[in-house]
Simulated assay, not measured.
Amino acid sequence: MNWNEIRKKARENMKGYCRACKRCDGIACAGEIPGMGGTGTGRSFIANIEAIDRWRLELKTLHDIQKPDITSEIFGYKINMPVIAAPMTGLKGNAGGFLTEREYALMAAEACKNIGTIYMSGDANDPDMYPVGLDAILKTGVIGIPFSKPRTVKEIIEKANLAKKAGAMAFGIDVDGAGLIMMIRSGQFVGPKSKKEIKEIVDNIDLSLVLKGIMTVEEAEIAADAGAKAIVVSNHGGRVLDFTMGTADVLPDIVKAVGDKILVLVDGGIRSGVDVLKMLSLGAKAVLIGRPLMVAAHGGGREAIEFYLKKVADELYQAMILTGCKDLSSTPKVYRAN
């Protein structure tokens, strides 16, 4: 098994929805929603890639670091690599339906369990999607974080209670799903959340709260002040609002403002171990990866997801040796290219 073979198979199984490009950069699939592309012109998806590309690493080899430690700790749980499976749903509409929601959730959860990292499950307009992720967490025993869309406060609390029963280690809200027209048109409320509402949710759930979709210092501070334990700097993979900034462009200021108050995670365009190291060097404690795991699943199932995660881990390990980085608390300096 190699990555080119996995991509080739995925391209066949996702025909018409994803090209499984050599580099998943949002250019070929711009505007393809349903599908795996970015919304509108696709510029927000592309901006994520461009933002990561602007950062440079220093090559260092005159040192004694031969076996860097790539393990991390999230909410007291040790994970073998600082890479987390992002919440992904909507396989029929966005990936063609070769895999069902249940099949993908189970294989992704099993892969994360075997690799020793965190699995995040998602939510969508289909009411069956959220329970599928909970079932995967319960059946596999993976370290899991289910995410709800920004529904009513009452609905979110109910979903958090279900997550607790399934054995989740934390609970998240995709706050950047506030304008999802498909959900609104199907009669399901989604909308922005005020600081007061976030506090109400925090006070009424028995799990640490993660807010995904934070792109400004102002909202990162609101999340911290409201009692959330973590944020994910994210523009939803460029799928909700056209022409946003790339996540690597806004991450440093957010970490500077709230990094000592709240756990900061990030997603958006991360494709390799070098990309992971850049994001960690910009202050993130771990990263989320979405689309490549979906491609892997369609190109070889659980084994291909594990292959990809191991590939990223090996790339990170190598990059840490070549930058003189002994562990994730001593990440190298990065420099912004002109």
Rank of each mutant, 00 (worst) to 15 (best):
M1A: 04
N2H: 14
E5L: 14
K9L: 10
R11F: 00
R19H: 14
R19W: 01
A20W: 03
R23V: 13
R23K: 10
C24F: 04
D25C: 07
C29Q: 08
I33H: 11
M36S: 05
F45A: 07
I46G: 00
N48P: 12
A51D: 05
A51W: 02
R54Y: 10
R56M: 04
L59R: 09
L59I: 13
L62P: 02
H63W: 02
H63K: 11
D64S: 14
I65A: 01
Q66K: 15
Q66R: 15
P68M: 05
I74T: 06
K78E: 08
I79R: 07
M88H: 08
T89A: 14
G90M: 11
G90Q: 10
G93N: 12
G93K: 09
E101S: 08
L106I: 15
M107L: 13
M107N: 02
A109D: 15
S121E: 12
N125S: 14
D126I: 05
Y130T: 04
Y130L: 08
V132C: 13
D135G: 08
K139F: 02
G141A: 13
I145Y: 03
K159F: 10
K159A: 09
A160N: 06
L162H: 06
K164I: 11
A166Y: 06
A168I: 04
I173L: 09
I173F: 00
V175N: 00
V175W: 04
G177Q: 09
M182F: 02
M182I: 08
S186N: 13
S186H: 09
G187W: 03
Q188G: 00
F189S: 05
V190Y: 06
K193I: 14
E197Q: 13
K199T: 14
E200Y: 12
N204M: 10
I205Q: 12
L209H: 01
V210W: 07
T216V: 10
T216H: 06
E218M: 11
A220W: 03
E221K: 12
A224Y: 01
K229C: 06
H236F: 03
H236R: 07
G237P: 03
G238F: 00
V240F: 09
T244D: 08
M245W: 12
M245K: 12
T247M: 00
D253H: 09
D253K: 14
G259F: 03
K261D: 09
I262K: 06
V264I: 11
L265F: 15
D267I: 01
R271T: 03
V274Q: 11
D275K: 11
V276N: 00
S281A: 13
L288N: 07
P292D: 01
L293K: 02
A297K: 10
H298D: 00
H298A: 00
G301E: 02
R302T: 07
I305P: 02
E306W: 11
F307Y: 14
K310W: 12
K311Y: 04
K311S: 05
D314I: 12
L316A: 03
D327N: 15
T331E: 09
K333R: 15
K333L: 15
Y335W: 15
R336D: 00
